[in-house]
Amino acid sequence: MNVTSERAPLTRVPLSDAPRPPLDTTQLAWPGEFVESGGVRLHIRRTPGPTDETAVFVHGLGGSSKNWTDLAAQLSLHAQGIAVDLPGAGQTEPPAGYKFDLVEHAETLAKFLRGLDLGPVHLFGNSMILAAKHPDLVKTLTLVSPAVPDLRPFPNRMSDPRIPFAMMPIVGPRFRRQLAMLTPMQRAQQLVKLCFANPALVPPHRLEETAADFVERAKLSWAAQALMATTLGLFRAWLVPPKQSLWRIVPQITAPTLVIWGTEDKLVTVRKAPRTARLLPKGRLLVLPKTGHVAQMERPETVARAVLGLFEAEKDGTW
């Protein structure tokens, strides 16, 4: 395992100088479309790029395909991009009976990718189970603050501390009414404050885009229930017996893997980073100072340099 910070010697985690498009701070999300593949229907966003390499981007809890706009653009000279909305997130309506747990998400995405027949892809995001259970689908893996078990108190790790109470019986309705009184922009500001180390650096158009997402999701009859079910599914994955723990899954991942973590991550503590990378047979760790939970959004250029270093090292067998 190799561990470094952004300021450490770059020989530990190779940062590529390969060409990348200049970062467009006004870039809006790539256009979306619904695609059916392998018996699965997902809403996705495509980033044009060389078709001999494909990067697949998978959001985390409460996220969507829009979380990868800037990083996908930075990698577009080297790989075409596919950012997915998992069932119950973004614009993808969950099928009847969907379980919303990590295993079902992984199997759903595996079916979708097999149907596309793209060969092994560069996989990004919260996708450890897919990489472990379907190694033939994964060429490289980039984990950005992955949702490994972290059982610290939850209220301080949510965009609004009232959210856990809104899920409870009896008192839940009162807290849900309070939350419903927040404007979409207030909710967007809360989310950015939680996920970014320095919310002041978020461009205005990103805040507006996030606020518009809250408006759109409020129109989807299944969205709130799906988010709650996905949240509970993640908590259950953290509370299973040790033999079923995600920590037992990580060592099964055979693909060259880059783990990226921000020192100011409020959702999943950076203290979990060394253990995560150490358990990976081909893992390296990049810790970014003054960075929160979504390094790919807060530091897309730095993340892209590290990812292209991974691509190059995988290709020449030096990872």
Rank of each mutant, 00 (worst) to 15 (best):
residue 116 L to Y: 04
residue 187 R to Y: 07
residue 103 V to K: 03
residue 271 R to D: 15
residue 86 L to E: 02
residue 38 G to P: 12
residue 199 P to M: 08
residue 50 P to V: 08
residue 79 A to C: 08
residue 100 F to R: 11
residue 18 A to K: 10
residue 75 L to S: 10
residue 255 A to Y: 07
residue 105 H to Y: 15
residue 223 A to C: 04
residue 43 H to I: 04
residue 29 A to P: 03
residue 152 R to N: 05
residue 105 H to T: 00
residue 135 P to Y: 04
residue 213 D to Y: 02
residue 89 A to I: 01
residue 280 L to H: 13
residue 59 H to S: 03
residue 75 L to A: 08
residue 284 R to I: 10
residue 318 T to F: 00
residue 178 Q to S: 13
residue 207 L to K: 03
residue 46 R to A: 06
residue 155 P to Y: 01
residue 13 V to R: 02
residue 97 G to D: 07
residue 48 P to Y: 00
residue 283 G to L: 05
residue 137 L to V: 09
residue 287 V to F: 00
residue 15 L to P: 08
residue 313 A to H: 02
residue 280 L to C: 15
residue 141 L to V: 02
residue 243 K to A: 14
residue 174 R to K: 07
residue 30 W to R: 11
residue 36 E to V: 12
residue 168 M to R: 13
residue 266 K to G: 10
residue 284 R to Q: 15
residue 211 A to G: 08
residue 221 S to Q: 06
residue 146 P to L: 10
residue 297 M to D: 13
residue 309 G to F: 01
residue 191 L to N: 14
residue 286 L to Y: 02
residue 107 E to P: 06
residue 25 T to I: 07
residue 292 G to A: 05
residue 11 T to A: 11
residue 192 V to K: 06
residue 256 P to S: 14
residue 9 P to Y: 02
residue 70 D to E: 13
residue 306 A to V: 00
residue 173 P to T: 01
residue 152 R to D: 10
residue 256 P to G: 11
residue 128 M to T: 10
residue 41 R to A: 07
residue 214 F to I: 06
residue 213 D to S: 10
residue 222 W to G: 09
residue 152 R to A: 14
residue 164 P to G: 06
residue 108 T to I: 04
residue 30 W to C: 04
residue 109 L to D: 05
residue 299 R to T: 14
residue 191 L to D: 12
residue 232 L to C: 04
residue 132 A to D: 14
residue 312 E to S: 13
residue 210 T to W: 00
residue 30 W to F: 15
residue 229 A to I: 00
residue 130 L to Y: 06
residue 229 A to E: 11
residue 142 T to R: 05
residue 131 A to I: 06
residue 293 H to F: 12
residue 241 P to V: 03
residue 141 L to A: 08
residue 179 L to N: 07
residue 130 L to S: 08
residue 233 G to Q: 03
residue 14 P to I: 04
residue 274 P to I: 06
residue 224 A to E: 14
residue 211 A to S: 13
residue 48 P to S: 08
residue 22 P to V: 10
residue 10 L to W: 01
residue 234 L to C: 12
residue 53 E to H: 10
residue 198 N to E: 12
residue 45 R to Q: 15
residue 144 V to L: 13
residue 178 Q to D: 13
residue 190 Q to N: 14
residue 174 R to P: 01
residue 126 N to S: 12
residue 229 A to F: 01
residue 128 M to E: 13
residue 77 L to R: 13
residue 148 V to W: 00
residue 131 A to N: 07
residue 99 K to L: 13
residue 38 G to Q: 03
residue 129 I to P: 04
residue 266 K to F: 00
residue 66 K to E: 15
residue 156 N to E: 12
residue 206 R to Y: 02
residue 204 P to S: 07
residue 307 V to Q: 08
residue 63 G to S: 07
residue 319 W to V: 02
residue 169 P to H: 09
residue 61 L to F: 10
residue 43 H to P: 00
residue 282 K to E: 09
residue 88 G to W: 05
residue 208 E to W: 03
residue 168 M to H: 06
residue 142 T to K: 08
